[in-house]
């Protein structure tokens, strides 16, 4: 699977500017094989870049400028709230694996990956990761975060705002209150391309129970007596559909991609089909 992931790359719509060289076309001129322009030499420039052929013809020092190929800063925001610790297969487990897969695609392309997990608040996943060798550390780090707590998307606004322009991927079930719109607005302000990946369990998409129950919220612990009937099932599915459509509309409005994923999909299928389909990977 890792070999198949290495064949992929994050797809950005515009050039990026990173701190280190990479495989991404940068807006800055730098070192690469792709010629960009000439300019006059000024003291202090790297004399290795002087075009001696031009000096021979023009009798002055000219510097050859090349397109700089830089890294892509990828920020992964992973929801590990209480609602994600639910379903068969478990949403949090699936989210960790999906985040790892996307991160590996970036690491394989020498992109820089920054990991942030969140529930009631954001938790940094440590220093940015770069290169394939960092993948193992990142995977271990993903597994180390516990799940639990209520989702608070508004607490993501500050860490998102600190991001350099680049790509952000938010993996969540999108069920927290208030909604995810504030975080998406922050992504837009921070010039983030990227995607919102809504991850739900099959039991959420098709409730497999009926009758009387005492419902307990996985995040808040609030309980309510309830009687499931065909009518209430329809009402629940309508509410879930409206929630999903709201997230999708907000994402598109902010220039972000959106995909709804079910945890019973294999990770390989999510990456190879769904994420390529929405244009996140190529």
């Amino acid at each position: 699977m890792l070999r198949r992931l290495e064949a992929l790359a994050l797809q950005v719509r515009r050039a990026v500017s990173g701190q280190m060289g990479g495989e991404r076309r940068s807006r800055r001129r730098g070192q690469s094989v792709e010629f960009a322009d000439f300019r006059n030499y000024t003291p202090g420039d790297d004399f290795r870049l002087i075009d001696w052929n031009a000096y021979a013809r023009l009798d002055r020092f000219m510097l050859r400028l090349f397109v700089a190929e830089e890294e892509l800063p990828l920020s992964l925001f992973l929801d590990l709230s209480g609602s994600m610790d639910w379903g068969r297969p478990n949403k949090a487990d699936t989210a960790r694996r999906l985040a790892g897969a996307v991160a590996y695609v970036a690491l394989a392309a020498l992109d820089r990956v920054r990991l942030t997990v969140f529930a009631e608040g954001p938790t940094s996943g440590g220093a940015p990761y770069r290169g394939r060798r960092a993948a193992t550390e990142l995977f271990a780090r993903l597994q180390s975060f516990p799940t639990g707590g209520a989702t608070n998307y508004e607490k993501l606004v500050w860490p998102i705002g600190r991001q350099r322009p680049g790509m952000s991927v938010l993996i969540t079930d999108g069920l927290g209150e208030p909604g995810v719109d504030a975080a998406l607005a922050a992504m837009q302000r921070a010039q983030q391309e990227g995607a919102v990946l809504q991850l739900l369990a099959p039991q959420e998409l098709t409730p497999d129970w009926s009758g009387d129950a005492r419902l307990r919220d996985a995040e808040t612990g609030i309980e309510r007596e309830f009687t499931a009937t065909p009518l209430t099932q329809r009402a629940y599915l309508n509410a879930l559909e409206q929630r999903t459509e709201g997230i999708e509309r907000a994402a598109h409005r902010r220039g972000l991609r959106f995909a709804r994923l079910s945890t019973d999909q294999p990770i390989d299928e999510m990456v190879q089909l769904t994420l390529r389909h929405i244009g996140l990977l190529a």
């Binding site: 609602s83 994600m84 639910w86 379903g87 949403k91 079930d173 069920l175 209150e177 369990a201 959420e204 129970w209 009758g211 009387d212 129950a213 005492r214 419902l215 307990r216 919220d217 996985a218 995040e219 808040t220 609030i222 309980e223 309510r224 007596e225 309830f226 009687t227 499931a228 009937t229 009518l231 209430t232 009402a235 629940y236 509410a239 879930l240 929630r243």
Partner: peptide, 21 residues
């Protein structure tokens, strides 16, 4: 009714429906 407890990811998505069977 003695109702079994069911944990749901988002309680606010479920309608306020209760009836004793």
């Amino acid at each position: 009714i003695r109702r079994p407890t069911r944990i749901v990811p988002a309680l606010h998505l479920w309608p306020n429906q209760i009836r004793d069977r």
